[in-house]
C-alpha cells in the first residue's frame, strides 16, 4: 500500500468510528435542516467545515499555531450545541441573514475548532515529515464525512417516516420542522453534557 493510501485510511477510519461521535453529531446537526434534494447546500456546508479544519490542522501540526488541547476539547461540544440550538431557533431561514446562506461560514469557523482537536495527536506522532500524512489524513476525513452524511440522511429519512407514521395533528408544525426539533434537541442535550464534562474550570 502507498503511504498516501495508508493515511487516507487512517483519516477515514478515524471519522467513521463510533468514538468519533462528537464529529458525527456535528455533521448530523449540520444536515438536520436539509432534505435529500438539498444535497448541494449540505455539500457546501460540509466542504466549508473541511476547509476550516484543514486550516487549523495544518497550522497546528506545523507548529504555527498552539492551542490548549483542554480548551479545544471543551469548544468542540460547544460548536455542536450552538449548531443544534440555531436549528431550533431559526424557523424561517428565508428571513435570516443572507437568507440562511451564512451556514457555510459558521461551519467553516467551527471547522477551525474541530481541526485543532485532530492536530494534537498527529503533531505528536508525525514530527519529522508531516505534509503527506496531513494531506492523506484530510482526504480520508473528507471521504469519511461523505459516508457519515449518507448515513445521516438515511437516519433522517427514517425519522421522517416515523413522524409520518405518528400522524401529527394538523395544528402541529410541518414534518420537516418536527424532525429538526427532534434531531437538534437530541444533539443539543448530548453536546451540552459533553461541554459540562469537559469544562476547563
Amino acid at each position: 500500500m502507498s503511504e498516501l493510501a495508508t493515511f487516507i485510511q487512517l483519516g477515514f477510519r478515524h471519522i467513521v468510528d463510533i468514538s468519533a461521535m462528537d464529529h458525527i453529531l456535528f455533521l448530523l446537526a449540520l444536515a438536520a435542516i436539509y432534505r435529500f434534494r438539498d444535497w448541494r447546500s449540505t455539500l457546501w456546508v460540509v466542504t466549508a467545515f473541511t476547509v476550516g479544519h484543514s486550516i487549523t490542522l495544518g497550522l497546528a501540526v506545523t507548529g504555527l499555531l498552539t492551542i490548549s488541547p483542554g480548551l479545544v476539547e471543551f469548544l468542540i461540544p460547544l460548536t455542536i450545541m450552538i449548531t443544534a440550538v440555531e436549528n431550533i431557533i431559526v424557523r424561517d431561514r428565508g428571513r435570516t441573514l443572507w437568507s440562511g446562506r451564512y451556514r457555510p461560514v459558521f461551519a467553516g469557523v467551527f471547522g477551525l475548532v474541530h481541526g485543532a482537536g485532530f492536530a494534537s495527536y498527529l503533531k505528536s506522532l508525525f514530527v519529522d515529515h508531516v505534509a503527506l500524512p496531513l494531506f492523506g489524513f484530510n482526504v480520508g476525513i473528507e471521504i469519511g464525512q461523505v459516508v457519515v452524511l449518507v448515513a445521516a440522511f438515511s437516519a433522517l429519512y427514517g425519522i421522517d417516516r416515523a413522524i409520518a407514521w405518528l400522524r401529527p395533528p394538523p395544528s402541529a408544525p410541518a414534518p420537516l420542522r418536527l424532525r429538526v426539533l427532534a434531531v437538534s434537541s437530541l444533539v443539543a442535550v448530548v453536546a451540552a453534557h459533553w461541554a459540562i464534562e469537559r469544562a476547563p474550570w
Binding site: I18, G117, V190
Partner: peptide
C-alpha cells in the same frame, strides 16, 4: 407530534449519553 418528537429525541439522547465517549479526551 411535537411531544412525540421531543420524547423520541430525549430517549435517544439518554442512549447516546450512556454509550458516547466519556474519556477526558473526546476523540
Amino acid at each position: 407530534g411535537v411531544k412525540c418528537s421531543l420524547t423520541l429525541a430525549f430517549v435517544l439522547a439518554a442512549m447516546a449519553l450512556a454509550t458516547g465517549p466519556n474519556e477526558a479526551n473526546a476523540h
